[in-house]
Design a protein around this nucleic acid. Structure first.
Length: 557
RNA sequence: CGGAGUGUAGCGCAGCCUGGUUAGCGCACCUGGUUUGGGACCAGGGGGUCGAAGGUUCGAAUCCUUUCACUCCGACCA
């Protein structure tokens, strides 16, 4: 590619609203441009990068035996009604009508469409397993798009769906997909962790996210310093914490004005860990709602996603005080309402909890042998201990670029998609679903690999391996040498670009640093002495090279 | 969805509060010249429905109303 003939609008100034490096540089370097809120155009260079990443995804998936398909971007709303998800997705699902007044949606994901494609076609266990995928545009009408390509409304995603006759076979495919996804991210040169994720709301037995470590990530992830354990904060586990508490006689204590844990800890002069915090939430289900009280240790924070998954609600909202009796004094013995108790409180003694009576708390409370719904409810903290090795956990930021999920029969059942098993019995497919955000990966690479001058593409994500920069296009010797080197490199199969624009040297160097191609050959002043320079983008180190060695040096670097 | 902002040339901004010639500035762009290893300099030039609609006024980028778009903080995000 010759830059002199390329649509490559680089700018000195960043878009005023861009905050993240990936957003700023991708726009400044002429890779993408915004056309609407959360909607981006890919310019020639951006399209090359997007296609390269797409190609790597496809290559690894095909190697793993997956088959590429392409589903319609527009799907009939009726399919979403059939699975029950049109309500669940809410206004994130962009709906519209055609001229005949039929309802359609822009696909935000394609479980329904893929199940519809195979049902009545994969009718025997002999035809299973199958893993079908597509790399296609998705649209989610996000309430608040932001961060450039990282959270757009329209984006390119690979979504795959596997169909199995048994859970054992699903497990095998799930592991294979984890390996395959890891290979893809490795090839892109990304620093990532595979973490346990919440899988409650949608059901199913397992869910893992692929998190690229980045300061600007939107997700908090818990990682172990001593082993491979990692989990989204929403699903992270820890070793139970033990405490030695002062023995307390069982009795009601008058505690006026003391409602919060802080106030109580001061009132009793006891550690917060000895108290039981009651967190009242209203759980919203598809067909009803109810108040649920979650009880956790006073020193802990409720992890809402865990709580929500456990009760199987669509979402939890704060309960209104008017819906509660004795707010501030709610205790474990409250009646007439659903209660869930944190598993770390099981069999604990000498606790202080509300007395379910205005201005009173109950001390010396024991949970020994008491029947409650117990569940893991608390948020893991920095410094907690790892469940798999006992090591110290720390919290870091990540960007989710992939998600694999054991779906089970949720969609196949809802859509009545079945096959005949070995016993001639009609059963629903056992399914897995696997996604990678392809356009998001473009931004993620930049997020993880840039400096104050611009992008530093990794080897396999870069639009080109090398750019030949002709310092002064008006000098015949420089132009001739640069052109020949460019043609020779192309002939060797190197992905090479030629910066033959009539700009000054400094301009072209700044663009090189901004655009981020891993290396450049500068054909300039030193050509008279039989030398050119090779520059590495990552270090900006310049190496003088004899003109007759440059081919070889470029190839080996 | 709650809160807060911003819309003036391709991009970044000033002007608006306190209405009044022909709406400015920097970058970018075009022409000519001089430069040529770190985003050059000189001279000349082109480009605007001031987001849109309505209103007040002799007169509106400026005041009022409505509306659209975009952004930020939060909530949300299989």
């Amino acid at each position: 590619m010759r830059f002199s003939k390329t649509f490559l609008p680089t700018t000195k100034e960043a878009p005023k609203d861009a905050v993240l490096p990936s957003h700023i540089y991708l726009v400044r370097a002429g890779f993408v441009s915004q056309i609407g809120s959360g909607i981006y155009n890919f310019l020639p260079l951006g399209k090359i990068v997007l296609d390269r990443i797409r190609a790597i995804v496809k290559e690894e998936l095909d190697k793993a035996g997956c088959q590429e398909t392409q589903l319609g971007f527009v799907t009939p709303l009726s399919l979403w009604d059939e699975s029950g998800r049109s309500a669940k997705f809410g206004s994130e699902l962009l709906r519209f009508k055609d001229r005949k007044n039929n309802d359609f949606v822009l696909s935000p994901t394609n479980e329904e469409a893929m199940v519809d494609l195979v049902r009545n076609r994969l009718t025997s266990y002999k035809q299973l397993p199958q893993n079908l995928y597509q790399i296609n545009t998705k649209f989610r009408d996000e309430a608040r798009p932001r961060y450039g390509l990282l959270r757009g409304r329209e984006f390119l995603m690979k979504d795959g769906y596997s169909f199995h006759e048994s859970y054992e076979d699903l497990d095998r495919e799930y592991d294979l997909m984890q390996k395959t996804y890891s290979k893809i991210l490795d090839r892109l040169g990304l620093d990532f962790r595979v973490v346990e994720a919440d899988s409650g709301a949608i059901g199913g037995s397992g869910s893992r996210e692929f998190m690229v470590l980045a300061d600007n990530g939107e997700d908090d992830i818990v990682v172990c310093g001593s082993c491979e354990y990692g989990a989204n904060i929403e699903a992270a586990k820890r070793v139970k914490k033990e405490y030695q508490h002062k023995v307390l006689e069982l009795k009601e204590i008058h505690t006026p004005e003391s409602k919060t844990i802080d106030e109580l800890a001061e009132f009793f002069s006891l550690p917060k860990t000895q108290f039981v915090k009651a967190v009242a939430k209203k759980a919203i289900y598809e067909d009803k709602d109810e108040v649920v009280i979650f009880f956790i240790r006073g020193s802990e924070e409720l992890q809402e996603t865990k709580a929500c998954s456990f009760v199987g609600a669509i979402e939890l909202i704060d309960a209104d005080e008017s819906e509660l009796e004795n707010p501030g004094f709610i205790g474990l013995d409250i009646a007439g309402v659903r209660k869930v108790v944190d598993i770390e409180l099981k069999d604990e003694e000498n606790l202080i909890t509300g007395a379910n009576k205005q201005d009173y708390h109950l001390q010396g409370y024991s949970l020994k042998g008491k029947e409650f719904e117990y569940a893991d409810l608390v948020t893991v903290r920095e410094g907690d201990k790892c469940v798999s090795c006992g090591g110290e956990l720390s919290i870091t930021k990540g960007i989710e670029v992939g998600h694999i999920f054991k779906l089970g029969d949720r969609y196949s059942k809802a859509l009545d998609a079945t096959f005949l098993d070995r016993n001639g019995k009609r059963v629903p497919y056992i399914m897995g679903t696997y996604g990678i955000g392809v356009s998001r990966l473009v931004a993620v690479v930049v997020e993880q690999s840039h400096d104050e001058k611009g992008i530093i593409w990794t080897k396999n994500s870069s639009p080109f391996e090398v750019v030949v920069i002709i310092s002064d296009i008006k000098k015949d010797d420089q132009r001739d040498f640069g052109e020949k080197l460019y043609e020779d490199l192309k002939a060797k199969g190197v992905r090479v670009a030629l910066d033959d624009r009539g700009e000054r040297f400094g301009f072209k160097m700044s663009d090189f640093e901004l655009i981020g191609i891993p290396k450049a050959v500068i054909v300039g002043k030193k050509l008279k002495d039989g030398e050119v320079q090779i520059v590495k983008r990552a270090t900006l180190e310049k190496i003088d090279v004899k003109t007759d060695e440059v081919m070889q040096r470029v190839l080996e670097l």
